[in-house]
Design a binder for these strands. Structure first.
Lengths: 110, 110
DNA sequence: TCACACCCTTACTTTTAAGTATGTGGCGTA
DNA sequence: TACGCCACATACTTAAAAGTAAGGGTGTGA
């Protein structure tokens, strides 16, 4: 938080670059989710990291957090409209990443 | 190195996600460079990180390393053809990142 | 009265990335 | 003889990210 990011690629990496952030985003592209849902969909994430990543994504404007003041509390997470502008970027990255993974599998040496 | 990457977005982040990698790539898109050139072009990078990032990029197949057995030694780094397939991905990321940086400047409070 | 559901928070530890400082090899030059 | 050039390698330290474990607040049902 202490320095401004001059490199826009680093910006994207910062927004998308938590260990579970792509997975979270992926689930939110499909549908709005509650905290509990995400925990179940991503069994290996710890509560701490899930909360922290959701907060990060919220602060970047990518994710919307809606609290219903019911008992017990209900909190919904969804992609913001702005967050949807990130989807094509993620798709381009995905496509290259997939191809790269395949390539790496074929030539494990080199 | 110990686990295979299942998420292709993480793959891209892994390839591009060192502190100086986007900068290195950027300079190699423009031209082939020698180790010394890169040191001068990126004054803040340490030798250790420059070497390490170049090795990483080489191992991913993105960068070519050519050694001329002269004295003193001469080593050239360049983007491979495969590395050039990464450029459009980087450009898409760049575009979103720039826009995102502007947006963040305008609304420092959420 | 007690546990449970939901959505977290906090403190502490481990792992990973990056930074700092110093050393290496072989040849040309002074 | 010593010194510098180029492209590193290695060891050690610091900082950042992630993991682990435990607690909290509130109202409802048993």
């Amino acid at each position: 938080m202490i320095h401004q990011r001059e490199c826009p690629i680093e910006t994207v990496i910062h927004v998308l670059g938590g260990k579970w952030k792509p997975t979270i985003l992926w689930h939110l592209v499909e549908s709005t989710r509650r905290y509990n849902d995400l925990e179940k969909l991503i069994p290996d994430v710890s509560q701490k990291m899930l909360t922290q990543h959701l907060r990060d994504l919220e602060q970047e404007g990518v994710v919307l957090r809606t609290v219903y003041p019911t008992v017990p509390p209900k909190v919904e997470y969804s992609l913001s409209e702005y967050g949807r502008t990130l989807v094509p970027v993620a798709e381009v990255m995905c496509a290259w990443g997939e191809q790269h993974n395949e390539r790496k599998q074929k030539e494990p040496a080199s």
